[in-house]
Design a protein around this nucleic acid. Structure first.
Lengths: 249, 249
DNA sequence: TGAATAGTGTCTATAAGACAATATCCC
DNA sequence: GGGATATTGTCTTATAGACACTATTCA
């Protein structure tokens, strides 16, 4: 807005009483996702307090009155999830009146993508953190809630509307994978085309044609060979590529 | 969440004090968009009060403490924009700390699509409402703020971060047009393929190949012939199609 | 009949899927 | 050498763009 503020407007702003109307709380919740062993996974924390004590929840926090949404996301990722400098994107804002039984909470959901090695390290550093497997009961972009299970396939009940948040996350990832550079965010710095294809197949939930996948990726101009190759594999080693990051942020 | 609430949890909830922390206000802003004469347009209202008095704003309102986001959008569309039963979709949530000079306001932006006849009627019914032309200074999905001008091309200064909201709206529309049934929402019940192509070209900001556009639309299965044709045109009348709405909502 | 746009048919270029052949590593 | 996967090359098929041609309305 380029209009100058007049003295009259400055006076109006100084006398504005923001407390005249009841206001909701605003929170951010973050689905921190990775791919490991051909399964989509996300970080969950146990709820140790009411409400939904005993259930599993995405890392989240209330947004400070002088804190931007992105700052709140960064804070919750650092303090509750144990990761920094990861790719994040706003997902959707959940505003149902009864989504939190304590009080009215508007929830701004974000997703974050990280390679499995970094997430595994964060999980190992804190017993509370669990790396859950996502069980997606629908195809393509159909949508709907997504449930979480542990390594043995035992369901981990999700708190609040977090199953819906995970559902929107998976649908968004599937929708963006084809045209946005997000597959790379789920892999380490250097990766093989086969690893990248596995990531895509895991996110999409169905196998891809190998030849056409390779052609698309190589022709797409988003990756470049590092000149190095895999080592210590019991077959012909694949070339290692890196994401030609067009500068993040 | 399927876990039963225990008596202990019920007691916790009853004693929960939501006022312990300062909370932001939450508002919805709606970009109500249409296509007319090959230009993207949106509804703007003049700001008659501080802040940004004299600038132009998207219809918006604070969200009631017992009102869902969607209900607030419906309310603002009915009361401020004068339209009901239109296609709406959540766009993005703007959370910069200083985006409103009065107080901290988290803004959940929505866009709404409507055919030009309905929007023209709403504008004609209330002098305050203006149908502004959107001036998009970038190509494809590049993004960035979008400005508004009147019929003569004179700039209409936008309040708050509404130029950014319109920018995200246009980028979203361009991104979704190819795979989501949104072009139809900008046209009346029955339309010709040429009208649909013009809508697509206007949203995308560049011309499309006629043959391939027709093939895609007819093959896509989202439209069906009504059996009727244009009337009173000075050339061969085109067949009228309708959107085979797979049920809205 | 002429102006103007709708609609059809055909050819070409490009991208995707299928599949065979060869390359390169570790054991 | 044998096992396993990477990588290249070729053929086939589907789709998009280009363009010529026919159709139908009103003035």
């Amino acid at each position: 807005m380029s209009i100058e503020r007049s003295p009259e407007e400055m006076a109006f702003l100084a006398s504005y009483d923001a407390s005249r109307f009841p206001r909701p709380s605003v929170a951010v919740d973050v689905a921190l996702v990775t791919v490991l062993e051909g399964r989509l996974r996300c970080l969950l924390l146990p709820r140790t307090e009411h409400p939904d004590k005993g259930a599993w929840a995405l890392p989240g926090t209330f947004v400070g009155i002088d804190e931007s949404l992105e700052d709140a996301v960064e804070r919750v990722l650092a303090t509750k999830a144990g990761v920094e400098d990861v790719f994040t994107e706003q997902l959707f804002t959940f505003g149902a009146v009864d989504r939190d039984p304590r009080t009215r909470v508007i929830g701004v959901a974000y997703y974050a993508l990280v390679d499995h090695a970094r997430l595994a390290a964060a999980v190992a550093a804190d017993d509370a953190r669990t790396l859950a497997v996502l069980d997606v009961p629908w195809d393509d972009l159909e949508g709907g809630p997504v449930s979480a299970v542990d390594e043995q396939g035992v369901a981990l009940p999700l708190a609040f509307d977090h199953a819906a948040i995970l559902g929107v996350t998976v649908a968004r990832l599937r929708g963006k994978l084809d045209y946005a550079p997000i597959g790379f965010e789920l892999l380490p710095e250097a990766f093989t085309l086969r690893q990248l294809q596995t990531v895509h197949e895991t996110v999409l939930g169905h196998p891809l044609n190998k030849d056409s996948f390779r052609r698309r990726m190589v022709a797409g101009g988003l990756i470049e060979p590092t000149g190095r190759r895999e080592e210590n594999v019991l077959h012909r080693p694949a070339a290692l590529y890196r994401f030609t990051r067009p500068s993040r942020d």
